[in-house]
Amino acid sequence: MAEAASDARLEKPAGRPHPPRWLGPLVAVAVLTLAAALLLRTLGNYSAARLAASIEAASLARLGAAALFAALSYLCLGLFDWLALRYAGRPQPWRRAALASFCALSIGHNLGFAALSSGAVRYRFYSRFGLSAGEVARVIVFCGATVGLGLLGLAALVFLGRPGLVSSLTGLPEPAVLGLGAGCAALVCAYLALAALARRPLRLRAWSLRMPGFRLALAQLSVGTLNFALVAACLHQALSAVATVSYPQATAAYLLANAGILVSHVPGGIGVLEAVVTFLLPNADIIAGLLLFRLVYYLVPLALGGATFALTEILARRARRLSASAGPAGAARRRA
Protein backbone atom coordinates (compact mmCIF):
# COMPACT_ATOMS: atom_id res chain seq x y z
CA MET A 1 0.00 0.00 0.00
CA ALA A 2 2.74 2.43 0.97
CA GLU A 3 4.65 1.52 -2.18
CA ALA A 4 1.61 2.15 -4.35
CA ALA A 5 0.89 5.47 -2.71
CA SER A 6 4.48 6.62 -3.06
CA ASP A 7 4.68 5.47 -6.68
CA ALA A 8 1.56 7.28 -7.87
CA ARG A 9 2.51 10.83 -8.66
CA LEU A 10 1.05 12.13 -11.89
CA GLU A 11 0.90 15.85 -11.35
CA LYS A 12 -1.47 18.05 -13.30
CA PRO A 13 -0.49 21.63 -13.99
CA ALA A 14 -2.00 24.00 -11.44
CA GLY A 15 -4.62 26.54 -12.28
CA ARG A 16 -6.97 24.30 -14.26
CA PRO A 17 -10.65 24.91 -13.36
CA HIS A 18 -12.83 22.05 -12.18
CA PRO A 19 -15.23 20.75 -14.86
CA PRO A 20 -18.82 22.01 -14.55
CA ARG A 21 -21.32 19.71 -12.87
CA TRP A 22 -23.40 19.29 -15.99
CA LEU A 23 -20.45 17.86 -17.92
CA GLY A 24 -20.55 14.42 -16.24
CA PRO A 25 -24.20 13.63 -17.07
CA LEU A 26 -23.67 14.98 -20.59
CA VAL A 27 -20.71 12.63 -21.08
CA ALA A 28 -22.74 9.69 -19.75
CA VAL A 29 -25.61 10.38 -22.16
CA ALA A 30 -23.20 10.81 -25.08
CA VAL A 31 -21.38 7.54 -24.33
CA LEU A 32 -24.63 5.58 -23.96
CA THR A 33 -26.02 7.07 -27.18
CA LEU A 34 -22.86 6.22 -29.11
CA ALA A 35 -22.77 2.70 -27.66
CA ALA A 36 -26.40 2.04 -28.62
CA ALA A 37 -25.88 3.45 -32.10
CA LEU A 38 -22.75 1.36 -32.65
CA LEU A 39 -24.47 -1.80 -31.45
CA LEU A 40 -27.37 -1.24 -33.84
CA ARG A 41 -25.04 -0.34 -36.73
CA THR A 42 -22.82 -3.37 -36.19
CA LEU A 43 -25.75 -5.76 -35.93
CA GLY A 44 -27.17 -4.14 -39.05
CA ASN A 45 -24.17 -5.39 -41.02
CA TYR A 46 -25.38 -8.95 -40.56
CA SER A 47 -28.75 -10.44 -41.28
CA ALA A 48 -30.59 -12.21 -38.51
CA ALA A 49 -30.45 -15.39 -40.59
CA ARG A 50 -26.65 -15.17 -40.87
CA LEU A 51 -26.26 -14.57 -37.14
CA ALA A 52 -28.50 -17.53 -36.37
CA ALA A 53 -26.68 -19.75 -38.88
CA SER A 54 -23.29 -18.87 -37.39
CA ILE A 55 -24.46 -19.73 -33.89
CA GLU A 56 -26.15 -22.94 -35.02
CA ALA A 57 -23.02 -24.02 -36.89
CA ALA A 58 -20.95 -23.86 -33.70
CA SER A 59 -21.02 -26.68 -31.21
CA LEU A 60 -22.18 -25.81 -27.72
CA ALA A 61 -18.78 -26.79 -26.39
CA ARG A 62 -16.94 -24.34 -28.67
CA LEU A 63 -19.46 -21.56 -28.07
CA GLY A 64 -19.35 -22.12 -24.32
CA ALA A 65 -15.54 -22.18 -24.29
CA ALA A 66 -15.41 -18.92 -26.28
CA ALA A 67 -17.83 -17.29 -23.84
CA LEU A 68 -15.81 -18.58 -20.87
CA PHE A 69 -12.53 -17.18 -22.21
CA ALA A 70 -14.25 -13.86 -22.96
CA ALA A 71 -15.59 -13.71 -19.39
CA LEU A 72 -12.15 -14.56 -17.97
CA SER A 73 -10.62 -11.81 -20.10
CA TYR A 74 -13.03 -9.21 -18.73
CA LEU A 75 -12.31 -10.43 -15.19
CA CYS A 76 -8.62 -10.04 -15.98
CA LEU A 77 -9.29 -6.51 -17.23
CA GLY A 78 -10.81 -5.81 -13.84
CA LEU A 79 -7.37 -6.51 -12.39
CA PHE A 80 -6.00 -3.76 -14.65
CA ASP A 81 -8.14 -1.24 -12.78
CA TRP A 82 -7.58 -2.82 -9.38
CA LEU A 83 -3.81 -2.52 -9.81
CA ALA A 84 -4.15 0.95 -11.34
CA LEU A 85 -6.08 2.20 -8.32
CA ARG A 86 -3.30 0.99 -6.07
CA TYR A 87 -0.79 2.76 -8.28
CA ALA A 88 -2.84 5.96 -8.02
CA GLY A 89 -2.74 5.67 -4.23
CA ARG A 90 -6.53 5.22 -4.04
CA PRO A 91 -7.14 1.46 -3.72
CA GLN A 92 -10.75 0.37 -4.01
CA PRO A 93 -12.56 -2.94 -3.34
CA TRP A 94 -12.38 -5.46 -6.16
CA ARG A 95 -16.13 -5.20 -6.87
CA ARG A 96 -15.85 -1.47 -7.56
CA ALA A 97 -12.81 -1.83 -9.80
CA ALA A 98 -14.37 -4.74 -11.72
CA LEU A 99 -17.67 -2.90 -12.23
CA ALA A 100 -16.01 0.26 -13.50
CA SER A 101 -13.63 -1.72 -15.70
CA PHE A 102 -16.34 -3.85 -17.30
CA CYS A 103 -18.61 -0.91 -18.10
CA ALA A 104 -15.71 1.20 -19.37
CA LEU A 105 -14.03 -1.45 -21.52
CA SER A 106 -17.13 -3.19 -22.89
CA ILE A 107 -18.06 0.24 -24.29
CA GLY A 108 -14.53 1.44 -25.06
CA HIS A 109 -13.61 -1.70 -27.02
CA ASN A 110 -16.45 -0.95 -29.42
CA LEU A 111 -16.29 2.82 -29.66
CA GLY A 112 -12.59 3.03 -30.46
CA PHE A 113 -10.21 5.65 -29.02
CA ALA A 114 -10.45 3.66 -25.79
CA ALA A 115 -8.40 6.16 -23.76
CA LEU A 116 -11.18 8.69 -24.38
CA SER A 117 -14.31 6.54 -24.48
CA SER A 118 -13.46 4.16 -21.65
CA GLY A 119 -11.74 7.04 -19.85
CA ALA A 120 -15.00 9.00 -19.78
CA VAL A 121 -16.84 6.04 -18.26
CA ARG A 122 -14.08 5.46 -15.73
CA TYR A 123 -14.27 9.10 -14.71
CA ARG A 124 -18.02 8.78 -14.07
CA PHE A 125 -17.40 5.83 -11.73
CA TYR A 126 -14.24 6.91 -9.97
CA SER A 127 -15.34 10.49 -9.37
CA ARG A 128 -18.28 9.01 -7.45
CA PHE A 129 -15.77 6.95 -5.46
CA GLY A 130 -13.95 10.12 -4.44
CA LEU A 131 -11.05 10.19 -6.95
CA SER A 132 -9.92 13.48 -8.41
CA ALA A 133 -9.50 14.08 -12.14
CA GLY A 134 -5.73 13.74 -11.74
CA GLU A 135 -6.09 10.40 -9.96
CA VAL A 136 -8.41 9.09 -12.68
CA ALA A 137 -5.79 10.18 -15.21
CA ARG A 138 -3.20 8.06 -13.38
CA VAL A 139 -5.55 5.07 -13.57
CA ILE A 140 -6.03 5.55 -17.32
CA VAL A 141 -2.29 5.93 -17.96
CA PHE A 142 -1.52 2.82 -15.90
CA CYS A 143 -4.16 0.75 -17.71
CA GLY A 144 -2.86 1.93 -21.08
CA ALA A 145 0.66 0.88 -20.10
CA THR A 146 -0.69 -2.50 -19.01
CA VAL A 147 -2.30 -2.99 -22.43
CA GLY A 148 1.00 -2.21 -24.14
CA LEU A 149 2.97 -4.50 -21.84
CA GLY A 150 0.50 -7.32 -22.39
CA LEU A 151 0.71 -7.10 -26.17
CA LEU A 152 4.51 -6.88 -26.07
CA GLY A 153 4.78 -9.78 -23.63
CA LEU A 154 2.54 -12.09 -25.66
CA ALA A 155 4.22 -11.04 -28.93
CA ALA A 156 7.64 -11.84 -27.47
CA LEU A 157 6.45 -15.30 -26.41
CA VAL A 158 4.89 -16.11 -29.80
CA PHE A 159 7.55 -14.57 -32.05
CA LEU A 160 10.43 -16.13 -30.13
CA GLY A 161 8.66 -19.40 -29.39
CA ARG A 162 7.11 -20.03 -32.83
CA PRO A 163 9.15 -18.03 -35.37
CA GLY A 164 8.47 -20.55 -38.15
CA LEU A 165 4.70 -20.21 -37.70
CA VAL A 166 4.82 -16.40 -37.73
CA SER A 167 7.12 -16.53 -40.75
CA SER A 168 4.71 -18.76 -42.64
CA LEU A 169 1.78 -16.45 -41.81
CA THR A 170 3.47 -13.15 -42.64
CA GLY A 171 6.08 -14.08 -45.25
CA LEU A 172 8.81 -12.51 -43.14
CA PRO A 173 12.08 -14.44 -42.86
CA GLU A 174 12.59 -16.16 -39.53
CA PRO A 175 15.55 -13.94 -38.53
CA ALA A 176 13.28 -10.91 -38.91
CA VAL A 177 10.59 -12.56 -36.77
CA LEU A 178 13.16 -13.41 -34.12
CA GLY A 179 14.41 -9.82 -34.27
CA LEU A 180 10.88 -8.51 -33.72
CA GLY A 181 10.39 -10.89 -30.81
CA ALA A 182 13.69 -9.85 -29.28
CA GLY A 183 12.70 -6.20 -29.70
CA CYS A 184 9.40 -6.80 -27.88
CA ALA A 185 11.22 -8.64 -25.09
CA ALA A 186 13.77 -5.81 -24.84
CA LEU A 187 11.03 -3.20 -24.45
CA VAL A 188 9.41 -5.25 -21.69
CA CYS A 189 12.75 -5.68 -19.89
CA ALA A 190 13.46 -1.95 -20.26
CA TYR A 191 10.13 -1.12 -18.62
CA LEU A 192 10.80 -3.50 -15.73
CA ALA A 193 14.32 -2.14 -15.30
CA LEU A 194 13.02 1.42 -15.29
CA ALA A 195 10.42 0.47 -12.68
CA ALA A 196 13.13 -1.10 -10.51
CA LEU A 197 15.74 1.64 -10.87
CA ALA A 198 13.97 4.94 -11.58
CA ARG A 199 13.93 7.17 -8.53
CA ARG A 200 12.80 10.39 -10.15
CA PRO A 201 9.59 11.06 -12.07
CA LEU A 202 9.64 10.90 -15.85
CA ARG A 203 8.81 14.29 -17.35
CA LEU A 204 6.92 15.05 -20.55
CA ARG A 205 6.44 18.76 -21.04
CA ALA A 206 4.23 19.97 -18.17
CA TRP A 207 3.41 16.46 -16.93
CA SER A 208 5.33 14.41 -14.41
CA LEU A 209 4.88 10.63 -14.10
CA ARG A 210 6.49 8.40 -11.52
CA MET A 211 7.06 4.79 -12.54
CA PRO A 212 5.31 2.05 -10.56
CA GLY A 213 7.44 -0.10 -8.29
CA PHE A 214 9.00 -3.27 -9.68
CA ARG A 215 6.43 -5.62 -8.16
CA LEU A 216 3.56 -3.55 -9.50
CA ALA A 217 5.20 -3.42 -12.95
CA LEU A 218 5.69 -7.20 -12.88
CA ALA A 219 2.01 -7.60 -12.00
CA GLN A 220 1.16 -5.35 -14.97
CA LEU A 221 3.15 -7.56 -17.31
CA SER A 222 1.65 -10.79 -15.96
CA VAL A 223 -1.96 -9.63 -16.00
CA GLY A 224 -1.62 -7.87 -19.36
CA THR A 225 -0.09 -10.90 -21.06
CA LEU A 226 -2.66 -13.25 -19.52
CA ASN A 227 -5.51 -11.05 -20.72
CA PHE A 228 -4.42 -11.12 -24.36
CA ALA A 229 -3.73 -14.85 -24.15
CA LEU A 230 -7.37 -15.26 -23.03
CA VAL A 231 -8.66 -13.06 -25.87
CA ALA A 232 -6.66 -15.17 -28.32
CA ALA A 233 -8.15 -18.30 -26.74
CA CYS A 234 -11.65 -16.86 -27.26
CA LEU A 235 -10.81 -16.18 -30.91
CA HIS A 236 -9.35 -19.67 -31.29
CA GLN A 237 -12.52 -21.33 -29.98
CA ALA A 238 -14.72 -19.20 -32.23
CA LEU A 239 -12.61 -19.97 -35.31
CA SER A 240 -12.36 -23.65 -34.41
CA ALA A 241 -16.15 -23.85 -34.45
CA VAL A 242 -16.04 -23.54 -38.26
CA ALA A 243 -12.46 -24.34 -39.32
CA THR A 244 -9.29 -26.15 -38.28
CA VAL A 245 -7.10 -23.50 -36.67
CA SER A 246 -4.46 -24.01 -33.98
CA TYR A 247 -4.16 -21.82 -30.90
CA PRO A 248 -0.70 -20.51 -31.93
CA GLN A 249 -2.12 -19.59 -35.36
CA ALA A 250 -5.05 -17.75 -33.81
CA THR A 251 -2.76 -15.98 -31.34
CA ALA A 252 -0.29 -14.84 -34.00
CA ALA A 253 -3.13 -13.65 -36.25
CA TYR A 254 -4.75 -11.77 -33.36
CA LEU A 255 -1.49 -10.05 -32.41
CA LEU A 256 -0.86 -8.92 -35.97
CA ALA A 257 -4.47 -7.76 -36.38
CA ASN A 258 -4.13 -5.75 -33.17
CA ALA A 259 -1.30 -3.75 -34.67
CA GLY A 260 -3.67 -2.58 -37.41
CA ILE A 261 -6.49 -1.95 -34.93
CA LEU A 262 -4.30 0.17 -32.66
CA VAL A 263 -3.05 2.26 -35.57
CA SER A 264 -6.45 2.73 -37.20
CA HIS A 265 -8.55 3.23 -34.03
CA VAL A 266 -11.47 1.73 -35.96
CA PRO A 267 -14.32 1.13 -33.47
CA GLY A 268 -14.09 -2.46 -32.31
CA GLY A 269 -11.58 -3.12 -35.07
CA ILE A 270 -14.53 -3.57 -37.43
CA GLY A 271 -13.21 -4.70 -40.79
CA VAL A 272 -9.56 -4.58 -39.71
CA LEU A 273 -9.71 -7.76 -37.65
CA GLU A 274 -11.62 -9.58 -40.36
CA ALA A 275 -9.29 -8.39 -43.13
CA VAL A 276 -6.06 -9.28 -41.32
CA VAL A 277 -7.16 -12.66 -39.99
CA THR A 278 -8.67 -13.67 -43.34
CA PHE A 279 -5.46 -12.62 -45.11
CA LEU A 280 -3.27 -14.55 -42.67
CA LEU A 281 -5.45 -17.67 -42.74
CA PRO A 282 -6.64 -17.74 -46.37
CA ASN A 283 -7.27 -21.49 -46.54
CA ALA A 284 -9.80 -21.50 -43.70
CA ASP A 285 -13.49 -20.59 -44.04
CA ILE A 286 -13.42 -18.37 -40.97
CA ILE A 287 -15.90 -15.55 -41.62
CA ALA A 288 -18.55 -17.26 -39.50
CA GLY A 289 -15.97 -17.85 -36.76
CA LEU A 290 -14.96 -14.18 -36.77
CA LEU A 291 -18.61 -13.25 -36.51
CA LEU A 292 -18.97 -15.52 -33.50
CA PHE A 293 -15.90 -13.95 -31.89
CA ARG A 294 -17.25 -10.44 -32.46
CA LEU A 295 -20.61 -11.47 -31.03
CA VAL A 296 -19.14 -13.11 -27.91
CA TYR A 297 -16.29 -10.71 -27.13
CA TYR A 298 -17.64 -7.37 -28.35
CA LEU A 299 -21.38 -7.20 -28.88
CA VAL A 300 -22.72 -9.17 -25.92
CA PRO A 301 -20.43 -7.33 -23.46
CA LEU A 302 -21.38 -4.02 -25.12
CA ALA A 303 -25.07 -4.69 -24.53
CA LEU A 304 -24.46 -5.82 -20.94
CA GLY A 305 -21.99 -3.05 -20.18
CA GLY A 306 -24.19 -0.33 -21.66
CA ALA A 307 -27.22 -1.53 -19.70
CA THR A 308 -25.18 -1.78 -16.50
CA PHE A 309 -23.73 1.70 -16.99
CA ALA A 310 -27.21 3.14 -17.56
CA LEU A 311 -28.47 1.41 -14.41
CA THR A 312 -25.61 2.77 -12.30
CA GLU A 313 -26.33 6.28 -13.60
CA ILE A 314 -30.00 5.94 -12.64
CA LEU A 315 -29.14 4.61 -9.17
CA ALA A 316 -26.51 7.32 -8.61
CA ARG A 317 -28.95 10.05 -9.60
CA ARG A 318 -31.60 8.61 -7.28
CA ALA A 319 -29.09 8.45 -4.43
CA ARG A 320 -28.16 12.11 -4.99
CA ARG A 321 -31.82 13.14 -4.89
CA LEU A 322 -32.41 11.20 -1.67
CA SER A 323 -29.28 12.66 -0.14
CA ALA A 324 -30.31 16.18 -1.10
CA SER A 325 -33.82 15.70 0.29
CA ALA A 326 -32.44 14.34 3.56
CA GLY A 327 -30.30 17.45 4.03
CA PRO A 328 -26.82 17.68 5.53
CA ALA A 329 -27.64 15.25 8.33
CA GLY A 330 -28.87 12.60 5.94
CA ALA A 331 -25.85 13.08 3.68
CA ALA A 332 -23.54 12.68 6.67
CA ARG A 333 -25.27 9.44 7.66
CA ARG A 334 -24.89 8.07 4.11
CA ARG A 335 -21.18 8.83 4.00
CA ALA A 336 -20.77 7.11 7.35
Rank of each mutant, 00 (worst) to 15 (best):
R62M: 09
S59P: 07
R50V: 13
A57N: 07
A70D: 00
A57T: 10
L39W: 08
L43Y: 08
S59R: 15
L60R: 11
L40E: 05
S54N: 10
L68T: 09
F69T: 03
L43F: 13
I55P: 00
L63C: 05
L60Y: 08
R50K: 07
A71V: 10
L60M: 12
A58K: 09
S47V: 02
T42F: 15
A71Y: 00
L51T: 05
L40Q: 08
S47A: 11
L40G: 01
G44M: 06
T42S: 06
R50H: 12
N45P: 01
A57F: 03
A67P: 10
L39C: 13
L51M: 13
R62W: 12
R41E: 08
A53P: 07
A48R: 11
A49P: 03
A61W: 06
L60D: 11
S54T: 14
A58V: 14
A67M: 14
L68V: 06
R41K: 14
S47W: 05
L72P: 01
A52V: 05
A66L: 13
A66Y: 02
A58M: 10
A53I: 07
A49D: 12
N45T: 14
G64N: 08
A58R: 04
A52R: 11
L60Q: 06
R41G: 05
L72A: 13
L60N: 11
A49L: 12
L39R: 10
A48Q: 12
L60G: 15
I55Q: 06
L43H: 03
L39I: 01
G44P: 03
E56H: 11
S59D: 14
R41W: 15
I55F: 10
N45A: 13
F69A: 06
G44T: 04
A58Y: 00
L68F: 12
T42V: 14
A52Y: 03
S54Q: 05
A71H: 04
L72I: 04
L40N: 02
S73R: 03
L43W: 02
A52F: 09
A70R: 00
A65S: 11
Y46L: 02
R50T: 11
A57E: 14
F69C: 01
L39N: 00
A49C: 02
G44L: 01
L72N: 04
L51F: 11
T42L: 12
S73T: 11
G44N: 06
R62H: 15
G64C: 09
L72F: 04
F69D: 08
A61D: 07
L68M: 07
L68D: 02
A61P: 02
E56W: 04
A58N: 15
R62C: 12
L72K: 05
I55K: 09
A65N: 02
R50C: 08
A48W: 13
E56G: 11
L51H: 00
A57C: 09
G44R: 07
A71K: 02
A48P: 03
A48K: 08
G64L: 12
F69N: 01
N45Y: 06
L68Y: 03
A67F: 15
S73K: 02
N45E: 08
L72H: 03
A65W: 01
S54V: 14
E56T: 15
A71I: 07
L51N: 02
T42Q: 11
S47Y: 03
G44H: 07
R50E: 14
A53L: 03
A70N: 00
R50D: 11
S73Y: 10
